[in-house]
Amino acid sequence: MKMKWALLTILFTIATVLTGCDNPLMVLDPKGPVAATQANVIMISIWTMAFVVLVVVVLYVLMILKYRASKQSDDYEPPHIEGSKVLEIIWVAIPILIVAFLSVVTVKTTNEVEATPKGYEKQEPLVIYASSSNWKWHFSYPEEDIETVNYLFLPTDRPIEFKLYSFGPIASFWIPQLGGQKYAMSDMVTTLHLAADVPGEYMGRNSNFSGSGFAQQTFNVNVLPTKEYDKWVDEIKATAKPITEDKFNELLEPGHVGQSTFTGTHLKFSPAPEGENSGHHHGTSDTEKTDSEESSKDSHEGHSEHSNH
C-alpha cells in the first residue's frame, strides 16, 4: 500500500519536474536544433514509458489488493494455472509494437543528429577543432585562424562541425543545451554536428572521466549573433598573440589553466589525428575518408558516411 502511494508520488513528481517551466532541466531546455530533437525524443520516450509503467502498476496494485491471504478464507486453495496463450501473445505483441515505434523514432533522429541540422544544409558549416588535454579544451578555428582555450564563441544560425580529438585519455565533448556529446580520442577524429539558435552563455564540459582534474574540465560557450561574432573574431586578430609550439606544449602539461586566446592554430605544427596523421593506417578508415572527401567536395557529401540520406 505504502509502495503504491510512494510510486504514484514519484511518477507525479517526475511529470511535474520534467514539464515544470520556471527552472527547466538543462537537457530539456534546448537552445539549438540538435538539442531540440533530442529533447523531443526524450519526452516521447518518457510518455511512452509512463504508459508502460502505468499498466504494470495498475495490474500490480490490483493483484496485491485482491489476492492477499488476509482477504481470503483459510481453506482457499489457489488453482493450478499453466498460462494463457492469448494473454502471453498480447504481452509479447504490444511491447513489440512499442519497441518498433521507438525504433523508428530512434533511427530517424539518430540520422538527424549525425548530420548537418535540418534547415542549415545550404550554409557552409563552421569547422572548429576541439581537442582535449588533461584537463583543458583547445578550440582551433581554421577558417578564422584563431585558437582559444577553455572557452568557445559561436555564431547563431550557422551549422557548426566540431572535429574532436584528444591529447590524452578519452574525453567527451558536451554542451547539453546545444546537443548531445561525442568522444574525443587520441587516435582518430570524430565529428559532432551542432548549431545554436539562441544567443546566450552555456555550459560545456568533458563528461567522460579522465583522471584527477576531470571534475573541473569545463568550458564556457558564448553564442553570439553573426555580426557580433565577426566583431569578436576581428578583435582577437587585432589583440591576441600568435600561438607557438613552445607555448602550446606548455599548455598541454597536465593541470588547469584559465581562458586564453591566440592567433593561428596549433594544427599547423601539431595536426589532428586524421588522414595521414591518423593513429590507424589499416585500410580505408572513417577518418581518412572524411579527410579526402572533405577537401574535394562540399560538406554535405563529405559526411555521407554519417547519414544515410
Binding site: Q38, I42, S45, M49, T106, W174, P176, G180, S207
Partner: peptide, 23 residues
C-alpha cells in the same frame, strides 16, 4: 525494476543517449 527497465529503453535510444551518456 520496471522503472529501471523503462529508463533502460530510454537510454537505448541512441540519439537521446548522447544526452544521457556519462551522466
Amino acid at each position: 525494476f520496471t522503472l529501471g527497465g523503462v529508463t533502460g529503453v530510454m537510454l537505448a535510444m541512441a540519439s537521446a543517449d548522447y544526452q544521457y551518456h556519462n551522466t
